[in-house]
């Protein structure tokens, strides 16, 4: 993708800034919920105070990892395989995000 370097650079930095506080929050929360039962885990994750930041983490994280792995592919793969891998990279990031977001929604409203 030509002429997209600057915006990719900026999006990678912005998504990193978004992920930073969310990851700190998530790691601390996980430690405090380490011994939780199924019921306790569901009640924690269905609370908007957890569901909303977790949803944001998933979205910002998916954007960040899609760009990160794209750069790795572009650095090392120079054959026709590159296009295929870049497409699979998109698919993987979208699948992870969709699965996580659907689960968060399910826990909050259908659980």
């Amino acid at each position: 993708m030509a002429n997209k370097g600057t915006s990719t650079f900026i999006i990678q930095r912005l998504s990193a800034m978004a992920v930073l506080p969310l990851v700190i929050w998530f790691l601390i929360s996980l430690v405090f919920h380490a011994g939780d039962s199924y019921e306790e885990t569901v009640s924690w994750l269905s609370n908007p105070a957890a569901a909303i930041p977790l949803g944001l983490l998933v979205i910002a994280g998916a954007i960040h990892m899609r760009i990160g792995i794209m750069e790795v592919i572009e650095d090392y793969i120079h054959s026709g395989l590159k296009t295929v891998l870049l497409a699979l990279n998109w698919l993987f990031a979208l699948t992870v995000a969709a699965t996580a977001l659907w689960s968060i929604y399910q826990l909050a409203f259908a659980g």
Binding site: M65, G68, V72, A100
Partner: peptide, 23 residues
């Protein structure tokens, strides 16, 4: 930095699997 970034790609799948299991 690059290696952990790639590893976290798998970690993201694990997080999604854990959430999917909870749901």
């Amino acid at each position: 930095h690059r290696a952990t970034g790639v590893a976290l790609y798998a970690g993201a799948a694990l997080l999604a699997s854990w959430l999917f299991a909870a749901a």
